[in-house]
Amino acid sequence: MSFKSAVITFPGSNCDRDALCYLKDLTKGEVHNIWHEETSLPKVDLVILPGGFSFGDYLRSGAMASKSKIIDEVVKHANDNRYLLGICNGFQILTEIGLLEGALIRNKKLKFLGKNCFIKKKFKNNFNLSIKDNQILQIPVAHNEGNFYCDTETLNLLKNNEQIAFEYCKGEFSNTEENINGSIEAIAGITNKKKNVLGMMPHPERAYSDFHQSQDGRLIIESLIS
């Protein structure tokens, strides 16, 4: 059975094309591009909320996109137990919708961060099944507000429910950082309680092709398909 997926485009999304290519190349199935003003979603296995600066990041990153017409359908899709992945700005939108806990605040050095980062999986879920324990993935980040924050109570919930999917870590060589943006407990990605919704700051869609610096981003789609 072929894997079907969709990418939502908001005004200001700038990784929507990248996400579409990522899905087309790796799933070999049907891939839809959905404009934010649509009011229906095709029945697909995975929806991606892509990176970018939806609505210029005005008000608060992701805040305005979370009120788009298509969002009701996205929420229904998630409630149906199907996969939903928010990357970078997509992660910010998911926290604004309330599908994921916590918030993404400004990076600890208060500067945009565009570089390779290293992550590993924390708790197992369907998005990281194909990744080995302690396997270090190299995936680029590009964000201003990627510093994950939540209160202690929420953090304990995230841990107890095993909702932390990825955490930043040092790479194999010197001069790599433990926690690139100051996130609480170096959190790079979390899921909802049911673990069908994942938000992550690193961009796996920029690390899958042979010519990319790393192909580790494939593992996420491979995990979902397997």
Binding site: N14, D18, K111, L113, G114, K115, P140, H203, R206, F211
Partner: peptide, 14 residues
């Protein structure tokens, strides 16, 4: 300097 720039967006950077 250049870590403050996004250099991999569009997915075609070599």
């Amino acid at each position: 300097v250049f870590d403050q720039y996004d250099s991999t967006v569009m997915g075609d950077t070599i």
